[in-house]
Amino acid sequence: MTQFFDLWLQYGPLMLAGLVTTAWICALATALGLAVGLLLACLQSAPFAPLRWAVRSYIEIMRGLPILILLFVLYYGGPSIGLRLSAEAVGVFGLGFYGAAYFAEIFRSGFQSIPKGQIEAARMAGLSGTQIIRHIKLPQMLVMITPPMVNQIIILIKESAVLSIITVAELTKNTTQFVNETYAVIEPYLAAALLYWLLVEAVGQLGKIIERRVRF
């Protein structure tokens, strides 16, 4: 029994450190994904057709690709075209640009939910394109897109487990180290599952709070 506790005392901090790494990588990737996603969604209604096609194909390609292969191309394939990034950087950029395609679709559905008449009225009143997005579209669509956005962030957190395969020392990687060094197999992974589940639940609750805030 004491042996059991010793084991967790020894490896517990390692797993928590992994959880922290998972959290900050996901936070950065979400911020990057939201920014790029919003940009993509705006470009999708650009007047220049080739630009629209480029954005559309970017979204379709990203959505048809397993995240693992994107990470492999960046991490193992990158150096052969002169792109050298640390595993963590590949994690943030990979997850960010991957998530951006999904966030772009969510933003697009939000933009579409705003009645055309409002945009026309705003234009008549002399608002510029960016002003319309900033003051008319975004505040209204925030109500509608918050639930799917939170959902997508949760998916991103779960996808981040894949970063263990490209050697990022996040929760799954550190748990695997625990497993490899102690031969205790099931308990560490169950603990990892529990930690992920707690993180995901926390984000879900945070989403509910934001949902209440943006409602008007």
Binding site: K158, A161, V162, S164, T172, V179, V185, Y189, A193, W197
Partner: peptide, 15 residues
Amino acid sequence: RGTPILVQLLIIYYL
């Protein structure tokens, strides 16, 4: 739905 599929896979594989 709340845990990564990679972790589920490893648990099943070892369990």
